[in-house]
Computed example of a mutant assay.
Amino acid sequence: MITVFILLRRNCGLSKCISAYMVAMATSDLLVIVNSIIIYNILSYHFPFSFLSHTPVCKLIVYMTAMSLDLTVWFTVSFTFDRFVVICCQRFKAKYCTKRTATMVLIVISVLILSKNILVLFAYEPEQIINNTQWGCRSSVNILTSSPAFAWFHSAWIAWLPFLLIFLFNSLTIHRIVVANRTRIGLRGHRSENHNNSAMESRRKSIILLFSISVSFILLWLTHSTSLVITRLSNPNYYRGDLNNPEYIITETGNILKLLSCFLNPCIYAVTQNKFREELNNVVKSLLKQIVRLVEKHKEKTNAF
């Protein structure tokens, strides 16, 4: 929430285009934390037979969970493509890398994902019926076994296609930066090697940022994507909470790692910016001052009585 707030203030020295993508990614990560972790894995699990356990509500929670995960993945892909255009497509850069284009891209991606995940609502059925009331929701075995292509499509959409696109865009971008650096070094070879070059330093930071994006996303999502295909296609009934089942252990490990990526994204995309850290310090100091003032006012009222 603080990341979104700081980015919306636009005091981090970022362009409007980059800010739009970073706000979208931070917001989608927040949705994942709220839906997948707080509501689905904590409240729904530890408070059975509550309002959240009604089948329609449970289906909505599953839908929101799948939707938010898709958003965070494809917002990352769109941001990576935007950085690719900035560095590798100079002629296309002026038309594409604008706030208007970024907003339209984010809207189109959101609409497509909202429409695509409607299928999730039909992939679950009531877990049990008590007094004509539907409770819980579980995967519909009929849908999974009769449509193995659904698991392949879901795995490709959520991980394998993003893997390919992110790897492709970042590889081309890094190659372009390396070639540009070699050309620049060749042109200024007669100068001192210790000469400070701000342009080369900026390119070096770009390579580090892009490498962090690729490695963190691929490593944290690879286990989930692999286990998704193996378990859903070979054994649709694997997910029964058996702690001795290797498939269950791998699946849960993959889920933990993919959720962890949502915590790391703000660090990769925002915290690495010097001005963002300055804004973060200012916001934290401001909040602490407000808390101290409230405490002092409370003490004054208490002493008055």
Rank of each mutant, 00 (worst) to 15 (best):
F5Q: 11
I6M: 03
I6V: 14
L7V: 02
R9C: 04
R9P: 00
R9I: 01
R9Q: 15
R9E: 08
N11I: 00
C12Q: 05
K16A: 12
C17V: 05
I18K: 14
I18T: 14
S19I: 06
A20S: 15
M25R: 04
M25Q: 13
I33N: 00
I37N: 00
Y40C: 07
N41F: 01
L43P: 02
L43R: 02
P48F: 05
P48W: 05
F49T: 01
F49A: 05
S50N: 13
F51T: 09
S53E: 06
H54C: 03
T55G: 01
T55N: 15
C58F: 09
C58Q: 14
K59M: 05
K59A: 02
M64P: 00
S68A: 14
L69D: 01
W74N: 03
F75A: 08
D82I: 03
D82F: 06
F84T: 02
F84E: 02
V86P: 00
V86M: 11
V86K: 04
C88V: 05
C89P: 01
C89D: 02
K95E: 13
Y96V: 13
C97E: 07
K99M: 08
M104C: 10
M104T: 08
V105Y: 00
V108I: 15
S110F: 13
S110D: 06
V111Y: 03
L112I: 12
K116M: 11
N117Y: 07
N117H: 14
L119T: 13
V120W: 00
F122V: 07
E125G: 00
E125M: 08
N131M: 14
N131R: 10
W135Y: 15
C137F: 01
R138I: 15
V141H: 12
I143A: 09
L144G: 00
T145L: 07
S146F: 02
F153H: 09
H154C: 09
A159V: 07
L164Y: 07
L165Y: 04
L165R: 03
I166T: 05
F169P: 03
L172H: 06
H175A: 13
I177A: 01
V178A: 07
R182M: 08
T183F: 03
G186M: 06
S192W: 08
S192L: 09
N197Q: 09
N197I: 12
A199I: 12
A199S: 10
M200A: 13
M200E: 12
E201S: 10
E201A: 03
K205E: 10
S206D: 13
S206E: 13
I207E: 04
F211Y: 09
F211M: 09
S214N: 11
I218P: 01
L220V: 02
W221H: 14
H224R: 12
H224S: 14
L228E: 07
T231H: 07
L233T: 14
S234C: 10
N235S: 11
R240I: 08
G241I: 05
D242Y: 07
N244T: 08
E247G: 08
Y248D: 09
I249W: 02
T251P: 03
E252N: 13
N255F: 04
I256R: 07
K258Y: 00
L260S: 08
L260A: 11
I268D: 01
Y269E: 00
V271C: 07
Q273L: 11
Q273Y: 13
N274M: 03
K275V: 01
R277G: 03
E279T: 05
L280W: 11
N281R: 13
V283N: 06
S286V: 03
S286A: 13
I291E: 15
E296H: 05
H298E: 11
A304N: 12
